[in-house]
Design a binder for these strands. Structure first.
Lengths: 239, 239
DNA sequence: AAGCGTTTAAGTCAACATGACCTTTAGGGG
DNA sequence: CCCCTAAAGGTCATGTTGACTTAAACGCTT
């Protein structure tokens, strides 16, 4: 590979990893999947799941493989999108490691199983992590923060909220996703009106679901639209 | 570095590059900066400017350095944001190369000077490139397409349009940015009302500018807000 | 079976935002 | 001095929003 280096000896090979920020809504909270590191550096510290990209896989394939290896989660049914690359020269004490951060979203996911490196995988409430962000390994606190901001924004102008719901869901469940992630209560009636008036956001299945108490709720599945127009803005809704 | 590889011999080091999609508005068109490649592969083919990230620089610093080396443009005054990572295993015939794509925006920029690798740098109209996208080297057509989509969307809900204008600008100039990038004509009066009613989007300088013909236009500079609320949606404006 | 609590569903209304269109203002050039 | 042009500002019918109220449909209790 050395013959490519023409102008500078300052170029060197890097290791490329994929790290995943996996969000789900559980018990009325936004949760993120963390692993307890089983190897140095940051041994024993919580971290986002991730690992090295292999020779013949795409970045996305690598992210999916790490998700499976480290937490036993099949990511093919999750919403998975790239967040961005993080490559500060000293973000990893071992050398130059550039990580490609992925954002994954899913409905209330199964409890993760331990990974191959004897890591322990578990769901952690995001709200609680914000206070002591120092706990996370590498620059994972920054990645998590960016991921959260990304999700909050995307809720407004895409149908990404449906990724947190199952195949069919009630409007209350969908609203709960917005409320948990935005951290604000939304008016049920206005929320319903907006969602139903946004073409392609959701479509009724015709089925119903019985809540623990109260009137049955109609079920919906996600519609064909990804971009919402008009968007669902979190503005000054008070109550 | 080899002691890190525990589970697989399938991991190998990668080369990490930065590629830039630099947009500007010139002559009523959206233009992108291209270079004619001076080395193999894709010798002589147009490509986005870019090159290898060096040992001790951040990804962003590398992007800025390549911009300077390949096109003689000082990017410190440009809006520069990361687009994402592109890492298909065979995107570069020389081996595993992961590129971090950056999006740069600037006001009508000076004609670029040739780069160090005897590349010729020039502005190309984006609209014209869409037709024969095959002309670009590597996966740069895909990167360009993603960059364009990103800019179109960000115009709606951020003040990024001001990055295409100089330090002070008229509302007509700002509107022209939207019209060129969205490819649709906007009503001048309604555009003015929306921009001025969006808190922090622009602020008046008190100065005026004389157009070639017509009434003098008030000058504005960018305001303090980055996110626009309410956003400037491109919906069904007809005329 | 009548009443109650609860949740979904649907309606009301004033305030505000939007798109289409029109009028006025302020320059330069003939 | 009139005309052309572009900026600036106004009008108005139509939609959308947030706050709030009312109706419907279930289980549960009495």
């Amino acid at each position: 590979m050395d013959e490519w280096l023409k102008h500078s000896t300052e170029v060197e090979a890097s290791w490329v990893t994929a790290d995943l920020t996996i969000f789900t809504v559980r018990e009325g909270q936004l949760m993120v999947l963390l692993v307890e590191r089983g190897v140095e550096p940051f041994l024993g510290r919580p971290a986002l799941p991730g690992g090295y990209i292999q020779k013949d896989e795409t970045l996305r394939e690598g992210a999916l493989r790490e998700l499976w290896e480290e937490a036993g989660i099949d990511g093919r049914r999750l919403h998975l999108e790239q967040l961005g690359a993080y490559g500060e020269p000293r973000r990893d004490p071992r050398g130059r490691v550039v990580t490609i951060a992925y954002l994954a979203l899913g409905p209330d996911l199964p409890a993760p199983v331990g990974g191959t490196d004897a890591e322990r995988a578990y769901w952690a409430p995001v709200a609680q992590l914000q206070s002591d962000a120092q706990a996370l390994a590498f620059d994972h606190a920054e990645i998590l923060s960016d991921a959260l901001e990304e999700v909050r924004t995307k809720l407004e102008y895409t149908a990404v909220a449906t990724a947190f719901c199952g195949d069919s869901f009630t409007l209350s469940e969908l609203r709960k996703v917005y409320e948990v992630i935005w951290g604000q209560v939304l008016d049920p009636s206005n929320f319903r009106r907006k969602v139903l008036n946004t073409p392609g956001f959701v479509q009724p299945t015709g089925e119903q679901r019985l809540p623990p108490t109260g009137r049955p709720a109609a079920l919906y599945r996600r519609g064909t639209a990804w971009l919402l127009s008009p968007p669902l803005l979190r503005g000054g809704q008070q109550s």
